[in-house]
Amino acid sequence: MNCQECEEIISDYVDGALEPGAQTKIEHHLANCEACRAVRDDLLQIVHFSKQLPLHIPTSDLWSRIQTEIEAEQPKTWWARSKARLQNLYGRDFKFSIPQFAAIAAACIIVAAIGVVVWQKNNSQVPQFANAAPADNQLQTKLANDPSFQEFEQTIKQLKESVEQRKDTWGPELRLSFERNMTSIDQSLNDCRQLLSRNPNDETCKELLKNAYSEKVRVLQGFANF
């Protein structure tokens, strides 16, 4: 083995990655070549100290920057309100995941939340949720009597009209996105209505329905501006 051949495999040697045959050969060369021994010793040092490099510290305001971003990403008020209420209702072990919320588009957020709540309520041993659900027409009356929901329906109707006007100018991707958003929001609206129909006096369910409505308005407003 000459020095060039030695150098070609010396990193593998330092990493202990050579076949026994090659290892014997390089060790023989190293025993007789000071220059290559110098390379080996230096590489050993570099490899060794690379594992103990000093840590660097970011500036102290980085955390507050991150926090600001996180807060901007999640619909905070609705999130904070719902979480507090759900935890009051179901206890501390109620799992309501922020990342789950932040990870997906706002529309899906509601769906996920409703999913969790519906599941929780369907499986709940709490007597108040074991009650039979009132008939659907009762709920309709209830909704109609609630001015805020009527207002939502009114706003949504208007927004849908302006969206229909804009739609002709959209590309296929935007249309698809709109359909997807509407499907998931309508799904969550439905879930909310059913949830409320089973628990007509539950404030959290009302709150969730209200949020689903707000979300639909928000998304429609977004699309109406495209």
Binding site: P54, P58, L62, W63, Q67, F96, I98
Partner: peptide, 25 residues
Amino acid sequence: AAAGDAAAFEQLYHLHNRRVYSLCL
């Protein structure tokens, strides 16, 4: 943190930010 505990997430940040930052740097 996954269950929504903001303080836990902050603690994770404080425990690991220097390793992450050093790697990025």
